[in-house]
Nucleic acid binder design. Structure first.
Lengths: 314, 314
DNA sequence: TTATTTGAACAATTTAAATTTATGGAGACT
DNA sequence: AGTCTCCATAAATTTAAATTGTTCAAATAA
């Protein structure tokens, strides 16, 4: 109801006249006819109940009220230009924020590399990485706090239906032993051998632990018979424990690349046992996808995706 | 040429939706229908090539780009409101500037009182007083540097036609003597007595001086025979000179009110001689008249105008 | 001076844009 | 499921703005 007493077009015209000192020249610059300019200024004067220009002589000269209005006019138009520029920057990825979610594993070992690559190409987009449980990450994606996320665990069914879940990569969980362990010399272990090992595991709440337990059970192992030396809540801590000879563990291969090449840890093969989990990309299809998110999904993720991932076929 | 990518109305709608969290509620508040709101936002999104709202759920939620735009939006709309307020203040005389011109005499003795009265009623209007020669004042009024002026001299003819000249008041130029002067005792002087006096006058360039000379000449006096003791360029200086007994002078009565009542100066009457000049109000009819100027002319000036002035009949 | 030019105002017509009415579809609440 | 709310869409109407053509006044030039 509180009608605005002027339009941006009118302000633009006002500015042009003030700059040119003439209605006609302003009209030429704005690519309209002179009467259009006259009318708009007349409307402006009528609505504000002021006289803006002295049109007596050859030049149009601002009145006091006109000068006052012009000041605001310039400020307003400047703000408009700035707003446009900001929006353009956002569109061309020269600004904005990308919020990525990840589980402990991917957040620690995969994301830093991806984000590095992204920031190299778009240094003006700030990226935020949120490492949380699969469950919490799922909810954050659902309500828009996170643009996209990669998870390794299973989503609650309600979220599963709400979100777009795309298979992204296979994360192998390798059995690792201290490099000086007696069994480290064997080329291939048997499942039975596992019962002889002392395990250092993640705590039983963690998604990764649950996944490992399930896969071992599925392959016919009795996980109750496995000896658990200790439970830790950090992969790094487990790695250190294994390297110190405290026991064996199932760890994501991405997390032990460096230790393997340094030879400080041993990766064992177990016959007829593959402990693998699917990493999945989750997004919220019912929400706006930012340009940054779009680009990340299209150009960054595929470079790290496994060959079978749908993301490869873009 | 560079078309604006949005209108103030669109920004207003954007703000309302953001505040209400709903297209419909925003429409209600703005007293338009819901489709009008939807269409405008769609136009905005199309023109800026961004998505502004996530319309999935029950609430309309801003996207990142939307939040960015909203920031600017609020700033712009605030500036608009401020501009309106400033203009309103100007209209209601809660702001603005009034520039008044005056000659030495009126500027010194009359204007301060008038301006005081004006400022008492409209303390928010700043008033500027410019004391200049009649000629220069006339030109300033002509080209709009001065809103209105009161002059005592004769304008050049070209200006006379260009400007509106209204008789304002009669300024009597009284013959004043040192109070101890021998002739100060006489009830009435004769014109002949003037030749016996030593005069302290304004310098010959001043308008007041010219007016006095002309009037004396018109009344049959030979101004060559008048003895001029000295020429000063300030009325105050002349007053002091007269009080010190250095000579006589013709001074505007308005400038010696205080001295007369204090008895430090003597006002003499000369038979068959009236030295009076017309003070005139000049304005520029072809220029915009500010509200302040209007009010000053209408309500302040008449209180000091002589009975015959047209200003009285308002 | 008169003639010519230039800039702004005015009126009527055309063109464009925004709003409304009416309707359909998707999600949320009972 | 059924209903309700909210937003999108389409066609029609209303409203506003731009253009064309013309007049008028002031400034410039002959």
């Amino acid at each position: 109801m509180p009608e605005l007493p002027f339009t941006l077009d009118q302000l633009r015209i006002l500015k042009a006249i003030a700059a040119q000192g003439s209605f006609k020249k302003a009209a030429d610059i704005l690519y309209v006819t002179q009467p259009a300019v006259s009318l708009q200024i007349q409307n402006l004067e009528k609505q504000l109940e002021i006289t803006i220009f002295d049109r007596g002589g050859r030049k149009a000269i601002l009145t006091e009220a006109g000068r006052l209005l012009l000041e605001y006019c310039e400020r307003i138009l400047n703000q408009c230009d700035e707003a446009c520029k900001a929006i353009e920057d956002l569109n061309s990825l020269k600004g904005g924020t990308l919020v990525i979610g990840a589980s402990q594993t991917t957040g620690t070992y995969l994301m830093p590399r991806m984000i590095g690559l992204f920031r190299q190409k778009y240094p003006d987009v700030s990226v935020q990485l949120q490492v949380h449980s699969t469950r919490r990450t799922g909810w954050s994606v659902a309500n828009g706090q996170i643009d996209l996320a990669i998870i390794g665990g299973q989503l609650p069914v309600d979220l599963e239906n709400l979100l777009q879940v795309i298979p992204y990569a296979t994360d192998e969980l390798a059995l690792v032993l201290p490099s000086k362990h007696p069994l480290a010399t064997k080329k291939e272990l048997l499942k039975e051998d596992l019962y002889k090992l002392n395990f250092v595991t993640l705590d039983s709440q963690s998604t990764t632990r649950k996944v490992v337990d399930k896969l071992l059970r599925d392959s016919g192992l009795d996980i109750q018979r496995l000896k658990i030396e200790m439970e830790l809540n950090s992969l790094e801590a487990i790695k250190n424990a294994v390297q110190s000879g405290l026991g064996a563990s199932f760890l994501p291969v991405v997390s032990i690349e460096r230790e393997l090449s340094a030879g400080t840890i041993h990766k064992a093969f177990v016959a007829d046992l593959e402990v693998k989990r699917e990493l999945k990309l989750i997004t919220n299809p019912s929400r706006y996808t930012s340009r940054a998110s779009e680009v990340f999904k299209k150009y960054i993720l595929p470079q790290f995706a496994s060959l079978e991932s749908p993301l490869r076929n873009i």
